[in-house]
Amino acid sequence: MRINPRITDKLARIVLNTQAFFTVGILVIIILIIILKGAPHINLEFILSAPEDMGRHGGIFFTIIGTVFLVFLSILLATPLGVGTAIFLTEYTKESRFTKIIRFGVESLAGIPSILYGLFGFIFFVIKLRMGWSLLAGVLTMAIMILPTIIRTSEEAIKAVPRNLRIVSYSLSATKWETVTRVVLPSAAPGILTGIMLSIGRAVGETAAIIFTMGSSLRLPMSLMDSGRTMAVHFYILAREGISMEKAYATALILVLSILFINIIAYYIMNRVIAKYS
């Protein structure tokens, strides 16, 4: 007997609704667990004091500094490279075999898992270039890793700038570079910023690529050649080696909160852009 299509229709709606809310439920549960378990152990002292006894006591201040150094420097390197690539692909060339090859390179970089970045950074920066486990090796590895994200989001943002604005700029006797810097980039800036924010989020949460390049020293990195520990690596070590569950949860909360914060900013910027151009 054929089932009545109306009943199937209702059934489908119910099943899909349930699955969607189940998925959101997972997210809510994950966030709730981290907040409930982490919040009681967080205070200003936890954030602002140095870790003691492998992180069993004290705070995570050095790891926050390590994270900030790593993220800031890798973004500083990857942004001009990424935005420059995006400008080249969108403004300075037509679609050709050459751009196809570059896009293939970008897509491939985006697909490489972080452990392979770790493997590469370890052999190339740490061993061959004799940087040792250092902030510099971590920064260079991370910069390559986030490059594809920045290129792709910048390209999308630049492509969304109406062609008319470029035409007007050229008609007012602007050169290509003047048009790019004075019209295209200002209009694309929020979209580019969103990409940078997403990259920051990725860099903050990364472990596999960092632990083998930047190392996991709990001292404060005083130079580019010093090893250091990011929050994510610290959390991993706390959790995996069972050093302190309390500190692990608290670190996880700070980690998730900072990524949440970065995502919200990125989303806010993105929505403003959508509102502006629609």
Binding site: N164, V168, S169, S171
Partner: peptide, 20 residues
Amino acid sequence: DQISLRRRVGTVFAVPIPLP
């Protein structure tokens, strides 16, 4: 060249296109 030509020849297009 186009750049110096466009300094001498200005254009107003059919649709008003203000820069943002």
